[in-house]
Design a protein around this nucleic acid. Sequence first.
RNA 1: GGGAGUGUGCCCGAGUGGUUAAAGGGGACGGGCUGUAAACCCGUUGGCUCUGCCUACGUUGGUUCGAAUCCAAUCGCUCCCA
Length: 400
Amino acid sequence: MSDHLRPLLRNAVDVLPQGALEKRLAEAAAAKRPLRIKLGLDPTAVSVTLGWSVVLSKLAAFQEAGHLPVLIVGDFTARVGDPSGKSKTRPMLSLEQIAANEADYLRQFSKILDIDRIEIRHNSEWLNELGAGGMLDLAAKSTLAQMLERDDFNKRYTGGAPISLQELLYPLLQGYDSVAINADVEIGGTDQKFNLLVGRDLQEQAGMPQQSIMTHELLVGTDGTQKMSQSLGNFVGLDDLPADMYGKTMSIPDEAMPAWYRLASGLPEDDVAGRIAALAAGETEPVDAKRALAFAITARFHSDEAAEEAADGFRRQFAEHKIPEDIPTAILGPEPTVHVPALLVDHLGVASRGEARRLITGGAVRLDGETVEEIDLPREALVGRVLQRGRRDFVRLITG
RNA sequence: GGGAGUGUGCCCGAGUGGUUAAAGGGGACGGGCUGUAAACCCGUUGGCUCUGCCUACGUUGGUUCGAAUCCAAUCGCUCCCA
């Protein structure tokens, strides 16, 4: 494999059709024009997760090689809902919400990508124009059997779960984006393979050159089993504080380490390969490998200093079981007796007072490290002390 | 349009008139052990002013001393026929 191609193929699973990318690159070089690299995104969530870093890094690699990332903001399709990997449809979003999410996304993307050197397009631009006639034209060339080849449709269909016609049409809309922007290459996760291929079909029907597609391994979440996603709550966000980024990474199962190293660490490919090999050979202790991984990720999105600090704080809190230094404070009310469950709900993110009571019963609540057993405590017993819920949530109680 | 099913707690799923806030499993959370890993053990998993009260088995209404369980209507979903 030639050196200039290698970074472009990193972490790719499928690169289709065979040889097409190389051909495209050669043509582009000869014509001295950049390739248009499409990445679609649904502006539905709030945080950009570490899972995104895989494709964003790939865009950065293309950018490095002189090509042009074209980001498609699915402001139209967000109102339809992509069924990828989901068993149910997702809610539609308002335009205002979509615009707000988009701005937030770009800010987070800029941690990986030079967002001043990308093209940003909204698919409402052409999909609004498409109209019923255009939609029917798109749909005329696809069959139900073709659509049902898509894995998650297939599963739902055979499992007797509903698939709305709207969802069924989604891949056509997304594929049409490729026609509209003249994509040369489209990248995405492995779950997007079908959609990316639809883009090729529609480009062919439109009589234009067909894009190459490239799918990428999906990063597993902190649970080590399911795909990292915001809705599953198993994610590390690019916006996470250093301590959270470090801590969440430390909580992943050992088995997830190789994948995280490859997909998320941001370390050079050879370095990653070496570390994974050392780990597999038992030359590296798993804990050490995980600390190094947590450090690498934290440093990647913050700084070496911030990562150092996060590592220190982590050691103090979880190895030495000390109360962390920077913890939020909460002002106690004037009442002489304090209802502890209310305190937990108000300041430690407990969902309900009933839940708080259960936590107290279960020994999860501590005051300056001592297990709390009372539901109500006199105010004086709380002032100036640190209330703790579980292993990682603390609040210092003060007077106003 | 006709017919047959089905709708239970975060998810799956049992329950077909009376200790049912609802078996069991998964997930999650918490405690122990530990490397905030895995495995393992234990506990919790509707709300609250908590030895009690309130709300809950798609929705609405009804039968009954009493319903998730029976009836009616209604909404959603699946399958079959057209």
